[in-house]
Amino acid sequence: MPARSDGEWRLALPVAAFFALFFVAPLGVLFVVSLFAEPTMQTLALRQYARFLGDRLHLGILADTLVLGVKATLVCLLLGYPLAWVIARARPRVQSLLVFAVILPLLTSVVVRTFAWIVILGRQGILNKTLLAVGLVDEPVRLLFTELGVVIVLAQVQLPLMVLPLLTTFGRIDPNLADASAALGAGQWRTFARIIAPLSLPGVAAGCVLVYAACVTAFVTQTLIGGARLIYVPLFMYQQATGANDWPFAAAIAIVFMFAVLFVVVLINTVGRSRRALVHG
C-alpha cells in the first residue's frame, strides 16, 4: 500500500534546491554581511547590531513599525470578522457576490488601492469634504501623513487576507452547535462568546498572521500615506541600503526586523493554538 506514495517526496527536491539556492543562500548572505563592521566589509564585528539596537531613534522606528502592524491588524479583525460571519451564513447568490467584493481588492494593485486613499484622505478629499459638510469639524482634519491614516489604509488594503481564512474556519463550524446552544437557552451574544469565538480562533490566528506580516512590510502604503515624516523599518532599511549604500547596517536592520516579525507571528500562533487545546481538551 504505501508503495504508491513511495518516492513522491523526490518531486519536491528540485523545488527544495531552488529555494536553497535563491532563498536560503541569500538570507545567509544577508546574515554574513550584517556581521561586517564597515560598508567596505573588512572586519567582522557585531557593531551594526549595536548601532541599531543601542540607538533610541532606531529602536523607536522598530517599535513604531511593530505597533503599527498590531493596530492595523486589530482594525482588520474588527471589520473582517463580522463580514466573514455574514458571508458564511449568506444565501449562495449573496455569498458569491460578497466573496467577489473581497477578492477584487485582493487582486487589485496595492499601489492603486493606496492611491485611492490619497484621493479620499487628502485635505480636499472626500472624507474631509463630507465631515465639513455635515458640520462635524470646522476645518479639514489631517489624515494623510499621520499614523491614523496609515492604519486606516493598511487595514483596508489587507482586509481580504483576514476575511478569507475566517471564511474557511466558519465554513467548518457545525451549524448545529449554534442551534443547540440556542435551544438550551443561550442568547446570540452568549452563543457567540462561548461557542463561535473559541472555535474560530485558529482562523483568527491565521488571518492575523497574514495581515500582520503584510502590514509591517507594506512599503508602498507606508511611504505614500505616511509621507517622509513617518519612517517605518522598511523605508529606513531601503534608505540605508540604496541611499547610504551601507549594506552591513541595512542587513543588520533586516535581520533584527525579520526576527521581531517572526516573534510576533509565533506569538499569535501560540495564542491560537493554546485556546484550541482549551476548547477540545
Binding site: V15, V29, L30, A250, A254, I255, M258, L262, V265
Partner: peptide, 30 residues
C-alpha cells in the same frame, strides 16, 4: 506526514511570512 516533508512545507511557505523587502535586499547582495 514525515518530518522532512513538514520541514519542506515550512520552507516553501516562509516567503509568505518573512518580510519580502528583507528577501529582496538579500537577493540583491547575493
Amino acid at each position: 506526514r514525515s518530518r522532512w516533508s513538514r520541514a519542506l512545507d515550512a520552507l516553501f511557505m516562509s516567503p509568505l511570512v518573512l518580510p519580502a523587502l528583507a528577501f529582496g535586499f538579500a537577493a540583491l547582495m547575493a
